[in-house]
Each structure stands twice: as C-alpha cells, then as structure tokens.
Design a protein around this nucleic acid. Structure first.
Lengths: 340, 340
DNA sequence: CGACCTAGGTATAGCGCTAAACCTATCATG
DNA sequence: CATGATAGGTTTAGCGCTATACCTAGGTCG
C-alpha cells in the first residue's frame, strides 16, 4: 500500500540503493540527472521513508525520549515552566529532524525499556530527582545521550542543563536586603533531595552572611509547591513570625499562596511583608499584587539541552558536562521596603 | 550488543518463534514448562523487544501521535488546559502499552509524513482548526485512527471529542441572567473559524433569546486569547459601553484580562460589571477576585479520546463518531448581581 | 488399523531500509 | 600502453521481528 524505496527504484529504473542515497542526500556518486529524476518521482508518488525500517537498519533512530516521572496519577507535572520547556524542546528537535517521544516513567527499569525498545538516540530527563539521575548505570543506558534538566548530579552519564539557581537566590535576597529587609524567611520544598532547592537555599544563606545577617533555621520552612500549602504558610508566618518582613520562595505558585495567606491573616503585601517568587510563570503577572520573581531563560534551557545532546551524539565530547543558564530578577509589586 | 529474540532462543534451546510467541503472550501451542523457562531467561537477560522491528514486521506499531499545530514559533500552545490533556493522554495510553509521539505540525503535509513515517496506529489532533480537520483526506491518512479534540468537523475520517461548548455557554449566561443581568457582552477569538467558539456563541444567543433579551451585535467582540487583549477589551467596555453589566468570555486568561482592564478603568468587578471565564484554569482560583468560570472534564476528555481510538483500532465501529462531555459552572467571585 | 486430530513446536519468507563491498566504463597519467 | 583514479552506479547481507505454512509424535475414532 505505502510506496517504498523499491517502488521508486523500479519506476526510476535504478537500484534501490541509488534511491536511498538520493533520498538521504548522501554526497555519493549519483549524477545530477538521475538525482533529479528520482527526486521528482519521490515527490510525485509521495514517498515517505519508514522510520522503523530506518532505525532497524541504521544505528540511529532520530528519536529522542522525553522522560518524565509518572508516579501513579499525574505524568506531566502541571508546572507551567515544565510545559514551556517541552514545547521548545519539540521545536528544536523538529528543526533537526528528530522526533520526540513522550513517556512517563513510573519505575526505574522503564527508563531502560523505553531507551532500548525504541532505540532512542537520546533522552531528556525532566523532573527527576538528583538521586535518580545518579543511579543510572552505563549498562542500563549505554550509548544514549542523556540530558537531565535541573539536576545537580555527579553522574558522568548524564549531561545537565539548569539555571543558575544559586545566583537566582542571590539576586532575590540581595534585592530584599537592598530594600532594607533583615528578617528574611525561606520557603521551598524538601531541599535535601533536590539540588535546585539546595542551591537556592545556599544562595540565600550566602547573601545573608555577606550582609552580616545571622542565619536562623526557624526562618527556613519546608513547604510543598501548591497554592494551599503556600497559603497555610502565609498564615503561619503572620501568626507566629510577625517579625519577618520578607519571604523568598522557590516557586511562583507557592509565593502566590503565601501572599494570599498573609492577606487572609490581615497582613498586606508588600506593605507589611515582601514576597519574592521564582520562575516568572505567566500567572505571576496576573495576580494582585503582581509578583516579583526570578525569571529563568526557558528557551535557552531547551536550546542548550538539544545542543548538548547533539554534540554528544556527534561524538564531539566537550569538556563541559553541564551548562548553567543565567537568570534575572523581575521586579513587580510584591517586594518593597519593610514597614517604617 | 542488545539481547534479541535469537539470543533467548539459543539459550532456551527452542526456536525463535517459540520465544516470540511466549513474549507476546500468544495462546499458541507452547507447554507451560517451556513458557516458564523462556520467561525466566527473558527476565534474566533483560530482554526488551525492539519496537522498530516489531512495527516493521507487524501491522501495528503501538505508537500514537500527538499532533499539535506549530506555526513558526510555538509548538505546544501554552494553554494550561491543553497541557493537562497531554499528560492524561500519555497516562491512558501508557496503561494500554502504547507510546506517544509528540509532533508539531507546521504544514499540512507533515501530518501525513508523521503518520506514515512512523506507522502510527493513531493520532490525536490537538488545537487544529475545524477546517484543517475537514481537509484531511483518506488517501493521505488511510487506516489511522484519528481523534480530533475540540473540533466540530464533518469529516468522517476523524473521531471527535469535545466538551459541551453550547451547554457551557448556556450555563454561564443563564447564571448571569439569573443574577439580574440584561446587557451581557460576549468576547472570544475568531468564531467563524472555530466551532468551539461558535458553539459557545450560539449558546449565548439562545439563552438571550429564551429570556427575551434582544441580541446586539455590538456586544459581541472578537478578542484574541491573551491577558493584554483582554485588558484592552475591558478598558474599551468601560469607556464605550458603560451600559454593559456582564461579560461572558471564552477563556480564563481573557476573562482575567477583562477584569484587570475594567479595574484599570475604574470599574469594579463584580460590583459594576460581572465577568465569567471558561476552562477553570488553575490561575482562575488565584486571581483577585476569584474567577467564576465554566469547567471542562479534562480527564474525561483524555480518557474518551483514548477509548474512541482504541475502539476504532479494534475495528468495533461504534455509531457515535463524536463524544461530547459535560461541563459545569464554577461559581466564584467575579459574577454578582448588577449595580442597583 | 489407517485416517485424523491435536499439542507442541520449527522453517521460511519477508517488513523497508542501510552499510559495506563490489563492479564497470571512462578518462587521465607516468 | 598498462595503471589507476574516479564517477556512477549495483549487489549482498543483514537489522529484529512477525505471519504463515509446515512438521512430527502421540493419541482417538470409526
């Protein structure tokens, strides 16, 4: 039913391999006349190469996996930031004539299965914990170009792309201190596990120290990323820590929750308390007051992930195994001078 | 390098076909003893079937495409609603041991290419205009189970899944009328092209008519879905149509923009003007005032898309070609009684 | 007791493509 | 003029799997 190389070859009166070479644009020995004739027939008959046959016969599949954790229910994290990266990855890869396979991973062995089953040339790991990346072994993963996003692992098997989380925290906290704040709380999800949060935490501590502000463990709270948890935290801060005049959070959704919780407890933002978020999600610009936050270079992240992957596939092993992208502070309305 | 059926066969001392049958769980003639022995070796050696070899040899590829329009820049629409559907589709398909290939389509021929190249068993079309679905021809698309989301096409080639857009609009407008509103504006993107908006518009008109409210074309505005466009529209309404006491919009982002535009022009929501959105995006609950909106059954949509596709793949052609899912009104704080 | 089922397999022939080796006529060169 | 480059191909041998047809020993039945 579908037209194959053989059909084209028969119609053009040449061997199958000649057609193959032409179709693949190989600079092999084919006269211009033959090439044009074949190309015309290819177009006329609407020939489309079979990707499965190709990946079976060749080394490469031109297929890249997009692997995301899928614990039980959700697969794609609803994180808008994640989503944007997915779209950009797809675009970058499409430009290079690669395809993207989206796959939720609920058990570690599924990574290997996905990789091997489809002969993936590479894979982007999105949203995995550092420890999971660390556990990847060469024998389960061999020969595939792996790029982990936002991980801080020591695994040489994986290339890594992330934003300057340390620097982003520095930016945020410095901004708050510049406004006059001295009691600055930190709120983020479990930071022992994920490098991203740990880095931001370290950035926070460093700037505190730089400015001669003593570090208070009680001002650091583990709060999961959700509006509800953020709001609860905001209420808690208002009730228990009225001395705190600023909060740095590791996610916009969380920050918005904190703002709402604070407001619900009768404290105004930024009048009484300043709040800084992270990610510059769309939503940050639409809430009232508009959220001051740290923006990542999302397109850059996607592009860099693809570049790293392609370089490894091409065999040119660059010295850098990880790339860190810049961030910038978006000043909006939730951070202002402390009261008085 | 990778272990193949042949390797397993050799180790088990049986023919390759026996292994194939066992691996595929075929109820073919294999003794329990042989089956168990083979299964053990499969597990021990970590055999993973090659999907490309399979789809080359068999009719089916167990691969489903997720096709989204990719005009120039963006590929995945940032629409949070879209994203959630993607995640759920992936999960449903994974449960059935299918894989999802994400592909942006920038030109119509790419649909065919993607389908044929990867021998896709099916594809979900997300975000295409009705006209594009209509243009799909059997010779370009033959044999593939196509499911279009949110389309209202007459093309028998595509199965369709959508929400009850007409009913959603009825719900929203009836709610506003119930609150006492009589001058109700409608704002949405180009409705001639997309059935979703057209249906919502018709629902709006119908409820107006039912309640003896004359339809005023000037109250219907074409506004693209963005916060900026919404805000501009809000300002326009405040300036030019102070008589309008309620606005029904076809998207939350748009609605939030309208609220902000109205507020910027000094009109309060819902005090002066009520606003109803559509989709119940996460963001709708986080803005101030919280958005009253129409919620779709997103998980249902994804599940139904997969069900429709699987039924067609299984050959059981059901009478219904399209499924319409229910919606419900989420009453929050942007719709209240009109002034006085 | 020969025809025949049936359980439990095996053998063969591709699917559509690519890599690698091979072939042949033509031309230039020492 | 033999040698060899070179252009312009062709042939062969799979990649790993599935479908389909085939085989054989042991039991069943009329």
């Amino acid at each position: 039913m579908a037209v194959t190389l053989k059909d084209i070859a028969a119609e053009a009166g040449v061997s199958l391999m000649t057609v193959s070479n032409v179709v693949n644009g190989k600079q092999a020995r084919v006269s211009a006349a033959t090439r044009d004739r074949i190309l015309r027939i290819v177009k006329d008959r609407g020939y489309v190469p079979s990707a499965s046959a190709r990946s079976l016969a060749a080394k490469s599949s031109r297929l890249v996996g997009l692997l995301v954790p899928a614990e039980g229910e959700t697969s794609l994290t609803i994180d808008p930031h994640t989503v944007e990266v997915v779209g950009m990855l797809e675009r970058e890869l499409r430009r290079l004539d690669y395809h993207l396979m989206l796959r939720g991973i609920s058990h570690r062995t599924e990574i290997t299965e996905a990789l091997r089953s489809w002969h993936l040339d590479g894979a982007v790991l999105l949203g995995f914990q550092d420890a999971e990346i660390d556990r990847l072994k060469a024998d389960t993963v061999g020969g595939v170009a792996l790029v982990a996003m936002d991980s801080y692992s020591a695994n040489p098997l994986a290339l890594e792309v992330r934003s300057d989380d340390f620097g982003g925290a520095e930016l945020a906290v410095r901004h708050l201190i510049g406004l006059g704040h001295r009691r600055i709380a930190f709120a983020g999800p479990g930071f022992s596990e994920t490098g991203v949060v740990r880095e931001r935490f370290e950035g926070y501590r460093k700037v505190l120290a730089e400015n001669g502000i003593g570090f208070e463990p009680e001002l650091v709270s583990r709060v999961e990323i959700s509006h509800a948890e953020g709001a609860a935290h905001g209420r808690w801060l208002a009730a228990e820590r009225p001395d705190v005049t600023a909060v740095f959070t590791t996610a916009d959704l969380l920050a918005i929750g904190v703002v709402d919780g604070l407001a619900a407890a009768g404290r105004s933002v930024p009048g009484d308390v300043s709040v800084v978020g992270y990610d510059n999600a769309d939503i940050a610009a639409y809430v009232t007051p508009k959220l001051t936050t740290v923006a990542q270079d999302l397109p850059g992240k996607a592009a860099e992930a693809v570049r790293l992957m392609m370089d490894r596939l091409a065999g040119k092993d660059r010295p850098e195994q990880a790339t860190t992208l810049g961030v910038r502070l978006i000043e909006r309305d939730t951070a202002g001078p402390p009261p008085q």
